[in-house]
Amino acid sequence: MQLAEGNQSSPATFILLGFSEYTDLQVPLFLVFLTIYTVTVLGNLGMIMIIRVNPKLHTPMYFFLSHLSFIDLCYSTTVTPKLLENLVVEDRTISFMGCIMQFFLACVFAVAETFMLAVMAYDRFVAVCNPLLYTVVMSPKLRASLVAGPYTWGIVCSLTLTYFLLTLSFCGSNIINNFLCEHSVIASVSCSDPSISQVLCFVIAMFDEVSSLGIILTTYIIIFVTILRMPSAGGRQKAFSTCASHLTAITIFHGTVLFLYCVPNSKNSWLIVKVGSVFYTVIIPMLNPLIYSLRNKDVKESVRKLMNH
């Protein structure tokens, strides 16, 4: 039990270095991230509102898309405000519980996003391969279950990893060479042995990545085979275009995650890790609503109607 007492006797604080080594870039970075965050909030809230108010968009695909927007909004809000604050204040400390809470929430939404993209792949699979039965198969009950899954699993993964982080003890100054409280960096500044926690994190991350990518790849292989068998060129084009935005979102999200896991943990790679982290916590939540709205005729029409009102 000695480990758990370590962080009760003197509450540890962490210092998030963020991008503090680039003193000349603090203001430009603040403005860039503030712009990105504003676009993220407006884009994702806008997407949720448009889907809510337009009856034409009350279909399974947009139901899942509104949840993806909700996850992106929450994910970005967990990370970006603290990043913005650290770019303008000298004091870059974050309390132990603040750091743990940030990790907990970021983990919930990261895992939820991973599997929400897999759910959306399944939705596209049903739409392309069983178009006549699409609305029957994607019943409200199934949709609710498919949406509840990613959130529930996100909470389970996050609670497990957070519990093991709380068993570690922290002493002295805990300098985190990143702008967010990520599992690997919290574990690496612990003064007790973090190996169980690190192995567990690796296992969960690998399982999530492999299983969600497995679902996505399987569904898309079947989708492509089905599309290629379609007799009309128009039908093929329509089927491809319904999948294009989802494929773009998947490629960017999983590409970044895989890239980060492949980076060796050397001192030179800290900047790459930070840039990668910016990409999937700050930039991707902004890109998703843009990808879906720019490539989507129905969403564009809805926006136009709202503008004209």
Rank of each mutant, 00 (worst) to 15 (best):
A187I: 01
G234N: 15
I215M: 08
V210G: 01
C157W: 00
S212K: 05
S184Y: 10
T160F: 02
I216H: 10
I223P: 03
V189I: 08
G214S: 10
Y151L: 12
I221G: 07
T167Q: 06
Y220R: 07
S145M: 14
V189S: 02
F224Y: 12
L168G: 00
L166G: 02
M206L: 09
N177W: 15
A233I: 12
I155F: 04
I227K: 12
S145F: 14
N178H: 15
E209Q: 13
C171P: 04
L200S: 03
F224T: 10
M206S: 12
L165F: 01
L200D: 00
S192L: 01
L159F: 05
S190V: 06
P194E: 05
A148Q: 11
T162K: 02
A205G: 09
Y163S: 09
S197K: 04
F224V: 15
L217V: 13
F164T: 08
C191D: 09
S145R: 15
T226H: 14
L228A: 12
I215N: 02
P194C: 00
F164I: 05
P150N: 12
L228Y: 12
Y220W: 11
S211Y: 08
A148F: 12
Y163W: 08
Q198A: 13
W153I: 04
Q198I: 04
G172V: 05
S158T: 00
Q198L: 14
L146N: 04
G154H: 01
I216R: 01
C201W: 01
G154I: 00
I215E: 06
L166E: 02
L161F: 01
S195G: 08
S195W: 07
F224S: 10
P150M: 11
I176C: 01
L213I: 08
V189L: 01
C171A: 14
L165M: 11
N174M: 08
V210Y: 02
I176G: 06
I227F: 13
D208Q: 11
C171T: 15
I175A: 14
Q198N: 14
V185T: 06
V203F: 07
S211F: 11
F164M: 07
H183L: 02
S188E: 10
T152S: 13
I204A: 00
I175G: 09
S232Q: 15
S211I: 10
L166A: 01
F207E: 05
L228T: 11
S190L: 04
E182Y: 04
N177Y: 15
S169V: 03
L200W: 05
S195Y: 05
L166R: 07
I222K: 10
G214K: 11
S188F: 07
A233Y: 13
S192C: 05
F202P: 04
Q198P: 03
M230T: 14
F179A: 06
I196T: 04
S190P: 02
G234E: 14
S173M: 11
L180Q: 06
C201F: 10
S212A: 12
Y163K: 08
I196Q: 07
F164S: 06
P150V: 07
T226E: 14
S192F: 03
L168C: 05
G154W: 00
I216C: 07
L166H: 03
I215T: 03
V189M: 07
V185P: 00
I227C: 09
